[in-house]
Computed example of a mutant assay.
Amino acid sequence: MPASPSHAVSLPAHRSPEQGRANPAARDDTAGLLTIVLGLLSVGETRIENLPESDGILATAEACRRLGAAIERAADGSWRIHGVGVGGLLSPEGSLDLGGSLAGAVLMMGVAASHGVTASFDGDPTLQACPIAPALVPLTRMGAEIVTSAEGTRLPLTLRGAVDAVPIVWQMPEGGTSSPIKPDLAISAVLLAGLNAPGETRVVAPQAAGDEAICLFRLFGADVATASERSARLIVLQGRPTLRPATITLPAETPPSSADV
């Protein structure tokens, strides 16, 4: 379903006939992380300009390489990703080390949850201390299995993805603001898992939640619809699309002014 202006809020977007192009309004590593992961699941070359090269970005890019993507940094500073397509992931050897990136770990678990691969996730001590269990609740409902984990369902953790994932209706829990896994990140993980599940994956979320993810999914060709449902937002994703590559331009980092120093 084509994106309409009412759906593109935090990531205003213009699509050319050949590729999607987005110019996000503010620099955000989470947008970069999600773009890398969607590039992994697309067929063809995705190009990302002004990608912030944080430790989390680099770790997530390496995890995507381990799952089959070809990723390189071009001489002009842009990143090129040749993806494997939805359903085409390889089972990685050894652990996927996400460093200190909670967002990277949650997004990669969302991908693995519906792809029939077995992947082990690890990170630095800060990430190992994070409660990851809330992100796994909807993923296990879709058929993913936690094979091993540290005490309290923390990293290091091994996840076996479902061979035939089950599309679900997931009502996001209310009053979960104390969790380090914020609503937009949780929504992104469920939608990533839903990409390789047949039929419709539905998320009932707070109003206006998930704007950035919805815009990016649409730029890559996913069929995502939204509707108001009482005081909540219903997000509906059609599973098993063929995602097309996109060109994403993230905003250039602005040097601090003298007033900020």
Rank of each mutant, 00 (worst) to 15 (best):
149 S>D: 01
75 A>H: 09
82 H>P: 00
21 R>W: 12
29 D>S: 13
170 W>V: 01
46 T>M: 04
51 L>H: 10
202 R>D: 03
73 R>A: 08
46 T>C: 08
39 G>C: 05
221 G>N: 00
31 A>S: 13
15 R>Q: 14
204 V>F: 08
252 A>R: 13
183 P>K: 06
226 T>P: 05
200 E>I: 00
136 L>E: 02
83 G>C: 13
72 E>R: 14
250 L>K: 06
92 P>A: 00
197 A>I: 00
261 V>A: 10
149 S>F: 06
47 R>K: 14
62 E>Y: 01
248 I>D: 04
237 L>P: 12
235 I>R: 04
199 G>V: 04
126 T>N: 12
123 G>P: 02
58 L>Q: 13
155 L>V: 10
163 V>E: 15
249 T>W: 03
188 S>T: 15
60 T>L: 11
145 E>K: 15
56 G>Y: 05
19 Q>D: 04
51 L>T: 02
188 S>D: 06
25 A>G: 12
106 V>T: 12
93 E>L: 05
125 P>N: 02
162 A>Y: 00
100 G>N: 13
110 G>T: 05
154 R>Q: 08
60 T>Y: 00
74 A>E: 14
53 E>R: 13
159 L>Q: 11
67 L>E: 07
11 L>N: 12
145 E>H: 13
90 L>Q: 14
201 T>D: 06
261 V>S: 04
146 I>P: 06
137 V>W: 05
193 A>H: 05
52 P>Q: 06
71 I>Q: 05
139 L>E: 09
160 R>G: 00
73 R>D: 01
40 L>H: 06
260 D>A: 10
208 A>M: 12
91 S>L: 02
237 L>C: 13
90 L>T: 03
201 T>E: 06
204 V>P: 00
192 L>I: 01
43 V>S: 13
197 A>H: 01
1 M>T: 04
42 S>I: 01
214 I>K: 09
140 T>K: 00
105 A>Q: 08
26 A>F: 07
213 A>N: 11
8 A>R: 13
121 F>N: 04
187 I>F: 05
44 G>Y: 00
123 G>D: 03
122 D>E: 11
2 P>T: 05
245 P>L: 02
10 S>Y: 01
138 P>F: 03
153 T>L: 14
143 G>Q: 03
119 A>W: 02
90 L>H: 02
41 L>M: 10
252 A>S: 13
242 T>I: 09
221 G>S: 01
131 P>V: 09
230 R>I: 10
216 L>A: 12
114 S>R: 02
132 I>Y: 08
107 L>Q: 04
102 L>V: 12
192 L>M: 00
217 F>E: 02
47 R>M: 01
208 A>K: 15
155 L>R: 14
191 L>P: 15
233 R>A: 08
31 A>C: 01
44 G>N: 13
235 I>V: 08
121 F>K: 05
227 A>C: 03
260 D>K: 03
45 E>W: 02
221 G>Q: 04
227 A>F: 07
179 S>G: 10
186 A>M: 15
70 A>D: 15
118 T>M: 05
98 L>S: 02
173 P>R: 09
250 L>N: 10
213 A>Y: 07
7 H>E: 14
142 M>N: 03
14 H>W: 07
135 A>L: 00
64 C>I: 07
225 A>M: 05
213 A>L: 03
76 D>V: 03
128 Q>L: 09
130 C>W: 08
35 T>S: 15
